[in-house]
């Protein structure tokens, strides 16, 4: 019930911010309401759907299962940050070209989860891609197009070394 607050300092998409936040506020609510980073979405608020996925200190986490105060001192990267750095520009391009999204609500989380396969790309089967994305719920596409887009991106990166 209490709205007690704490001051936190963290890096959000490379920018250092200091904010006073309610201790009960989730990281994704903090990013959306305090920082205006509305690319991360809320789908279930209990860690199942993956729509709120963000990177914290390099690891993909559920923004709805982590409190903002737990991110004190951390480096947080959202889909907006990944877009600005160009790190996943090829993946994004493939998502657009393959129409690997319809409503787009799961897309930021899906991209962040898929980006893990791109860091040090290895040949992967479609089944492995499917398993890797199994924690991200998409109600629109049926996943086939998403798997295509991720597969195309990995193959291209492997080709280009």
């Amino acid at each position: 019930m209490s709205e007690s607050k704490l001051e936190i300092s963290l890096s959000v998409n490379g920018e250092q911010v200091t904010r006073t936040v309610p201790v009960r506020q989730h990281l994704v609510d903090f990013l959306r309401t305090e920082e205006g980073l509305t690319g991360s979405h809320l789908g279930c608020e209990h860690g199942v759907c993956g729509a709120c996925s963000v990177r914290v200190d390099g690891a993909v986490v559920r923004g709805c299962l982590m409190l903002a105060v737990q991110a004190d001192g951390a480096e947080v990267v959202t889909v907006e940050g990944l877009t600005d750095t160009g790190e996943i520009a090829d993946l994004q391009e493939n998502f657009v070209e393959r129409n690997a999204m319809q409503c787009g609500y799961c897309t930021p989380g899906m991209l962040i989860t898929a980006s893990e396969l791109l860091k040090d790309p290895k040949p992967v089967s479609r089944e492995e891609i499917r398993n890797h994305l199994s924690g991200n719920f998409c109600r629109c596409t049926g996943y086939h197009a998403i798997v295509d887009a991720v597969e195309n991106t990995i193959n291209k990166r492997l080709e280009e070394g």
């Binding site: 509305t38 690319g39 907006e80 877009t83 998502f95 129409n99 999204m101 897309t107």
Partner: peptide, 11 residues
């Protein structure tokens, strides 16, 4: 789709 991949969808 181009907006969605950049997290610029507006719901």
């Amino acid at each position: 789709a181009k907006r969605a991949v950049a997290g610029r969808g507006r719901y």
